[in-house]
Amino acid sequence: MAQRHVARSNPERINLYQQITDRIIADLEAGRVPWVQPWGTANAGIGMPHNAVSSRRYSGINVLTLWHAVVSRGFSNHAFLTFRQAAALGGSVRRGERGVGIIYTRRFVPSSERRRADTEGTATSGGIPFLKHFTVFSVDQCDDLPEHICLPPPPIPDGLILPHAEELIAATGADFRIGGPSAYYSPGHDYVAVPRPDDFHEPINWHRTAFHELGHWTGHATRLGRDQIGSFGSKDYGREELVAEMAGAFICAALGIVPSVRHADYIGSWLQIIREDNRAILRAASAASKAADYILACRDTASTGLDVAGEDEVDGFELEGRLAA
C-alpha cells in the first residue's frame, strides 16, 4: 500500500516543483525578477503577503507566488485567506473567483514510531515528509469580511523608513562596518562591510545593499549554517547570491522599501542553476525567508524583549534538504 502511494504522490510533487520553476524561468527570461516586482504598476503598496486572520507572513516560494498574484491580478493589498477562514469570519469568496495555489510541507510520524519512542523513552525520528497544496484568496475576492480585515495597512510615513532600517541593523548585533570602496560579507571574520551612504547615487540603494549583505551574514555557522564556501563564479556561490538577493528583497518589502536587483548580471547564472534543478528556486526561497525572518526577529526581540519564534502554522513553506533529496 505504502509503495503504491509513493508511486502516485512523487510525480505530483515533481510536477508541482516544475510548474513553479517554469514560471520563475519565464519571468527571468523576460527580464522580470520575481522577487523584485514592478510595484510602480501595482495597485498594492510595498509589503509582504500575509494571512488575513493570523497576520503571519507567508514564507519561501509562497512569497513569490503571492507577489506575482498581487501584481498580475491587481489586488489592492497583500492579505490572503482560505475559503474556510472567510466563512468563519462571516464572509464569503465571491462566486467564480479563482484562488492562488500555495504549498507547505509537514512530517508524518507513524503510530508505530510514536509507540516505540514512548516505550524506549526516546525522541521520535524526523518522520516522513509530505507536500500539500492548498488555495488562498485575496481579501479583494471576498464579500462581507470585517472591515479591519479588508483595509490595507496605512503607508509608512515619510522619514521613517531610514530610521527603521537603521534600528533593524543595530538590533541584529552584527559587526557592521561602514566605509571603504565595496560591499561584502566576510564569512571568515564574520562582519559586514558597506560603503558610506553618500557614496551611492541614490541613498535608498545603501539600504538595499546593507540588507543583501546581512542576508549573507545570517548564513554563518552560528546562525542558520548555510554553505558559504563557494568561490566566485561557482554554482555554490551563485546559489548563495540568490538566497541573499531574495532575503534582501523580503526585508526591504517588510520595511516598505522598494526592492531592486542589486546584481542584475547574475541573472544568467541563476537561470542555469534553476534550469538544472527544478527544486533549486524552492530551496533558495525557503532559505531566503529563514534569513529574512531571522533578521526581522531581531527587531521584534529588541522591542519586546521576548523570543518571537513563529508558531507552527500551515500557511508557510519550508523545504528541508532531505525532503528534496
Results as ranks from 00 to 15, higher is better:
Val308Leu: 06
Ala253Thr: 08
Ala244Asn: 07
Leu28Ala: 13
Ala26Glu: 15
Ser234Arg: 00
Pro152Leu: 01
Gly121Arg: 04
Ile20Val: 15
Ala324Cys: 01
Trp35Gln: 12
His189Asp: 08
Ala324Pro: 00
Met1Ser: 07
Asn77Asp: 15
Ala79Lys: 05
Asn15Cys: 01
Leu160Asp: 15
Gly90His: 00
Ser55Glu: 06
Asp190Lys: 13
Ala280His: 03
Thr41Ala: 10
Gly219Trp: 00
Leu89Ile: 02
Arg13Met: 09
Ala165Asp: 05
Ser286His: 07
Lys235Leu: 05
Ala291Asn: 10
Gly305Cys: 08
Gly268Glu: 14
Glu167Pro: 04
Thr222Asn: 13
Gly219Phe: 04
Pro110Trp: 08
Leu131Ser: 11
Thr172Ser: 04
Asp265Cys: 05
Asp312Lys: 12
Gly179Phe: 09
Thr105Val: 15
Phe232His: 11
Gln37Pro: 09
Val93Pro: 04
Phe130Pro: 00
Gln85Cys: 06
Gly126Ser: 11
Gly238Glu: 12
Arg57Cys: 04
Phe200Met: 11
Ala221Cys: 12
Pro154Cys: 01
Pro155Asn: 05
Glu213Thr: 14
Gly90Ile: 00
Trp270Ser: 05
Ile178Asp: 04
Arg84Thr: 12
Ala297Ile: 00
Gly188Trp: 01
Gln141Cys: 03
Ile251Glu: 05
Thr124Gly: 09
His78Met: 05
Gly127His: 02
Ala288Val: 10
Gly180Gln: 12
Gly99Trp: 09
Pro129Lys: 03
Arg275Val: 02
Ala288Arg: 05
Arg57Gln: 09
Arg107Lys: 08
Met48Ile: 04
Arg57His: 11
Ala171Phe: 00
Glu12Asp: 10
Ile24Lys: 00
Asp158Trp: 09
Asn77Val: 13
Ala2Thr: 03
Tyr17Met: 12
Arg116Leu: 13
Arg208Tyr: 03
Glu113Asn: 10
Val93Trp: 03
Glu311Trp: 01
Ile156Gln: 02
Glu311Gly: 10
Asp199Leu: 11
Tyr237Asn: 02
Cys252Arg: 09
His220Ser: 15
Leu162Cys: 01
Asp198Phe: 02
Arg322Cys: 06
Gly31Asn: 04
Gly179Leu: 07
Phe130Lys: 07
